[in-house]
Design a protein around this nucleic acid. Structure first.
Lengths: 199, 199
DNA sequence: CGCATATCGTCAAAGCCTTGACCAAATGAC
DNA sequence: GTCATTTGGTCAAGGCTTTGACGATATGCG
């Protein structure tokens, strides 16, 4: 779901609906595009719902959209050509760096649910990249580890993945990258507040 | 897939694998957690693959993980209780703000594929929130619009959604929010470079 | 030691995503 | 006007996500 990259070259939006029913018609004279939609969204939510925290809307909308673009690019150019998926790569990445793990720990480190790790491991096991073994520590657990094939495959994939990451990161200076990471980390720490729902 | 919020309180990782086969064993003495994994990942990829752009790795890893946390929280606390999904909300949001749209335009504005919008519209139509009509402009197109029920439902959901966005955003000052949005926007503009894959 | 409770991984059902394909309609060249 | 090409929406297959449930195993209290 990578959007067109060249705003505002998209064809014109349909004309706004007639006055009366429903929300206030969009006031934009220019056609909306993926890019201008964020600005328009902020303006229009303020009009539709007085009291809207428009800065928060802009923040979350931008965060989600940019992340989606990055992930789509990485998945479609690096991982799908290998017959992999983005979540598959993420699980292989965790096992590559942390070594063999119990499935629950792999779920925790990768930020996936236990059921998602279980289903994903089915796929990766079938591809010969990961193997399951009963855990000596706990009869309920399975220990996931990369096969030799998996080790080689993830090293190769990560090289290409990192090359692509570098292209994305290169649009920011080193200082900007550091600032972005710092602010994202600060945003992420909000999850420690009791109001935020977490697993 | 929201990870535990309280680093590093997670139970200890399994002991590192023995020397020899596979990658260099993880050197960390502390158990890895969702949080410390990012730092560990950066350190260990540099060791596994000399020449790794570790700043890019940190940037993309952090971006993805924080976004995932935010989306999981919004979806599980605001949208799933309504019987909705995150993508469903996003499509409703676009139709709410832009008014009735042809499906292809809705796909464009929301950053989804046409097939994803089609399948999602099936669900929302079944829930009585969206309706399809043939487009007068183009015999191949369908025009998507919110039903009256849909209008009311999205207004109510967005109020709760925005309240939750506000909680997230509140962890940053207004200036920090503006800086984050600006840097994300700059990162997103990288998609205009020809190397980045886009739809 | 017995038993209630918690934990781990998997299962099932339903929804969402991707790619490739198909059919109908639109477009543009000649 | 004809025809090749493009476009729009849907379909199908396969993979990934969620929630709730289940059976096996572990834990801790009395």
């Amino acid at each position: 779901m990578t959007p067109p990259a060249d705003p505002p070259a998209a064809p014109p939006a349909e004309p706004p609906p007639e006055s009366g029913a429903g929300p206030t018609p969009p006031a934009a004279e220019e056609p909306l595009t993926f890019w201008s939609f964020v600005d328009a969204a902020v303006t229009r939510t303020a009009r539709q719902l007085p009291g809207t925290d428009t800065d928060a809307t802009r923040l979350v909308l931008t965060l989600y959209r940019v992340t989606n673009m990055v992930v789509y690019d990485l998945e479609s150019s690096v991982h799908r050509p290998r017959g992999w998926s983005w979540p598959g790569f993420r699980l292989l990445f965790v096992l590559w760096l942390a070594g063999p793990l119990e499935a629950g720990r792999a779920a925790e480190l990768s930020g996936m649910s236990r059921q998602a790790v279980s289903a994903l491991t089915n796929t990766l096991e079938r591809q010969g990249l990961v193997s399951r073994a009963p855990s000596a520590r706990d009869g309920r657990s399975v220990r996931l580890s990369l096969t030799d094939t998996g080790q080689r495959a993830i090293a190769d994939a990560f090289a290409a993945h990192n090359e692509r990451e570098r292209l994305w990161a290169a649009s920011l200076s080193a200082e900007e990258q550091a600032t972005l990471v710092r602010l994202l980390g600060k945003l992420g720490s909000a999850a420690q507040h009791s109001e935020i729902r977490r697993r």
